[in-house]
Simulated scan of single mutants.
Amino acid sequence: MLVVRPAGPADIDALLDLAFLSGKGFTSLPEDRAVLAERLALSAQSFAREVSPQHAWYTLMLEDTETGVIEGVAGIKGAVGLDRPHFSFRVMTLAQYSSATGTRFDHQALVLVNECTGSSEVGSLFLRPRKRQGGAGSLLARARYALIGANRDLFAATIMAELRGWFDERDESPFWHGIAAKFFRLPFEDADRMITATDGQFILDLAPRHPIYLELVDPAAREAIAKVHRHGARALAMLEDEGFTRSGLIDIFDGGPTVTAPRDQIRTVRNAQTLPAAAGVVEVAADERLHLVAVPGLATFRATLTPARITDDALVVPEATLAALGIRPGDPLIVS
């Protein structure tokens, strides 16, 4: 059975393996053992409530309980932009009119902004290729929202997500080469690494301070603006299904889109209910979906997809589900 659980320092080898598999442009999973070890230490502190909610970073692992193999990872940041600015480009329309010539032009432009301060962020969603079918991605993604819904006081009223931008068949970013590299003048890999390995001062030092008119930009870079990586299309669809919408913000390095949603309007959060668990046989029709169930709380959090029957006073699930989640009959369960 696949179960989502809190990550800790013992998961470093599995997390590093996933980081190498994730490939270029997956900024939140750097191929750096020391950085990832710090991430896991912070995750353990976050789940133990040893850091402030704004500075918490919760890392979740998708584990196959039968094999013990870690099949995926996802994360939630308590808040972004507090210790350093969280820069994005906003795609804006600049209108210009001349009465002397009787002409009007609407120019599309990129403007550097810092608008996401204080928002909580879901991200770092990555699965091994063999697990990208059969609902594993949905379980891992929705487990984040179940954790948020069970601990609303720890998260901001707005939840955001940044998606990896478009890379071509040569695994190169047209947006980086056509726009961002002209200001940072670094290899993409170096800039990508510095996002997580430094305080980000280089962005403040080098990022453009004036609007970038898109009429002056290389067409390939222009077409990549707000375009999602081929491996991120499914992630975007799942976010939109939960109620996230495009914000008009894009990543300053690869042009990937930022989507946002009100915390309490996320579908998994909005539809969740808490009931006492009960063990029993649950018949599932061929066209019936599995239910997301989760153990509330923080350090005790677990989530899985399972057959379930909702009654007036209990949530009936198979005995194996209770065992995988580490709970007993009568313990509370979230179902969505």
Rank of each mutant, 00 (worst) to 15 (best):
R302Q: 06
S98R: 05
R302I: 06
D168S: 13
V282C: 12
S52V: 03
A221K: 03
Q201W: 01
A157D: 14
G78N: 05
A323S: 13
G330D: 13
G81V: 05
G149P: 03
R270K: 14
V335G: 13
G135Y: 04
T93Q: 11
P276Y: 02
T300K: 06
E242D: 12
D251Q: 02
A74I: 02
V317P: 04
S22H: 07
G68A: 08
T300L: 07
S173P: 11
L333N: 08
Q201H: 11
P129V: 00
A44R: 14
D17I: 00
T245E: 11
E31V: 10
R142Q: 14
E172D: 15
R270L: 14
T258H: 12
L82Y: 12
D331S: 15
D264I: 00
Y58E: 04
G280F: 05
M160W: 00
G232Q: 01
H107Y: 12
L305G: 11
D17A: 15
E162S: 10
K77D: 09
R39M: 11
L236T: 01
P211A: 01
D331E: 15
D64T: 04
P276E: 04
Y58M: 06
T260W: 05
P332W: 01
E115A: 12
A74P: 07
A294W: 02
G123H: 02
L325S: 10
G165W: 01
D264Y: 03
M61T: 03
S88T: 11
T198I: 09
R289Y: 12
R246G: 11
D32C: 11
R104Q: 13
A237E: 12
A324T: 02
V317Y: 07
V317H: 08
D13V: 06
E288Q: 14
I310W: 07
P6C: 13
V113H: 09
L154E: 04
I334G: 02
G178C: 04
D313G: 04
I212Y: 05
M61S: 09
A161N: 14
A34E: 14
L206P: 06
D83T: 08
D17K: 10
K227F: 12
H231D: 15
L333V: 08
D241F: 04
A285Y: 10
P296V: 02
L16D: 08
G248A: 07
M238L: 15
L110H: 07
A14M: 01
C116E: 03
L127M: 05
E50C: 08
G297W: 03
